[in-house]
């Protein structure tokens, strides 16, 4: 018996990258055993594998998005999109495996209900984690007003959640100038009052939060907010463990009310 050479498509850790990889694998028409997706920088070289660098294009990404939406439905696309944002190195494989599994179902829009399939279950779990982190940050993110009136927020998420947060804040604060800085992934979302938000990658800006100048009013409102958070707690019900469970430590460095200074 001949050992099957597995083709691994290597792409960057972005939605465009991973969808381009899936595009190539899908086009090649191979089975789950014959192909895989790996991420640049997180590669574990294995024997009997062909490593193919993926040419990443918007066109491929859009085609895959349309393919998923058409055949698997919008809800499944939501799950897959969130899974692709996660920090898991096997996410590409999980998504590809899920799409291949959907082909075997009579009604492929039911794919995300097929939780006994390991790849589907993986996508489900990743999507739940990323969705959870994005939802948490909708609450835990803190804007601070700069001298020029721009609202600036810094986050350090595990997953690349910026594109989940941006539409939420764009809807909520349409008349404000604001930006969210994802320090983990060197990414920014910038929103100018009355316009659409844009996503930027820039390592040069990444050290900017050291020399930010905040407005005079900012310190006053932070003081009021800290006072509020302190007073609202009932002493006889104190329960740091419960607090910790709902608000894990990793979010706190970016939240003013947990800033020990002043």
């Amino acid at each position: 018996m001949r050992a099957v050479m597995k083709t691994i498509y290597v792409c960057s850790d972005t939605v465009t990258g991973i969808f381009s990889g899936i595009y190539d694998a899908w086009k090649a028409g191979m089975t789950e055993e014959e192909c895989g997706i790996a991420l640049k920088g997180m590669l574990e070289q294995q024997l009997f594998c062909d490593y193919v660098e993926v040419e990443e294009t918007e066109h491929k990404a859009i085609a895959v998005e349309a393919l998923i939406k058409k055949h698997l439905g919008r809800q499944a696309y939501w799950d897959i999109y969130h899974a692709v944002l996660s920090s898991d190195r096997e996410k590409g494989d999980a998504v590809l495996g899920t799409m291949l599994a959907a082909k075997t179902l009579p009604d492929s829009t039911k794919i995300m209900e097929h939780l006994s399939h390991p790849k589907v279950e993986k996508v489900f779990e990743l999507s739940r984690n990323v969705g959870g982190e994005a939802h948490a940050l909708k609450g835990f993110l803190r804007f601070r007003e700069l001298e020029n009136g721009v609202l600036y927020a810094r986050i350090t998420p595990k997953a690349q959640v910026l594109t989940c947060l941006a539409p939420h804040f764009a809807d909520r604060l349409p008349l404000e100038n604001w930006m969210i800085h994802d320090k983990t992934h060197d990414m920014f979302v910038v929103h100018e009052a009355g316009k659409k938000w844009v996503l930027l990658w820039d390592e040069l800006w990444n050290d900017m939060d050291g020399n930010l100048q905040f407005s005079e009013k900012e310190m006053e409102y932070e003081r009021l907010w800290k006072g509020f958070c302190h007073t609202i707690a009932i002493e006889s019900r104190e329960n740091p463990r419960c607090q910790l469970q709902h608000l894990p430590l990793r979010f706190r460095p970016n939240m003013v009310e947990f800033d020990e200074k002043s």
Binding site: K138, G139, E176, A233, I234, E238, P240, C242
Partner: peptide, 19 residues
């Protein structure tokens, strides 16, 4: 204007009593 509402609600912080 400013503001919107989410069906599920959003928790913005947790006080020392865990609420």
């Amino acid at each position: 204007g400013m503001g919107s509402c989410e069906q599920s609600g959003i928790c913005h912080s947790f006080s020392a009593d865990g609420r």
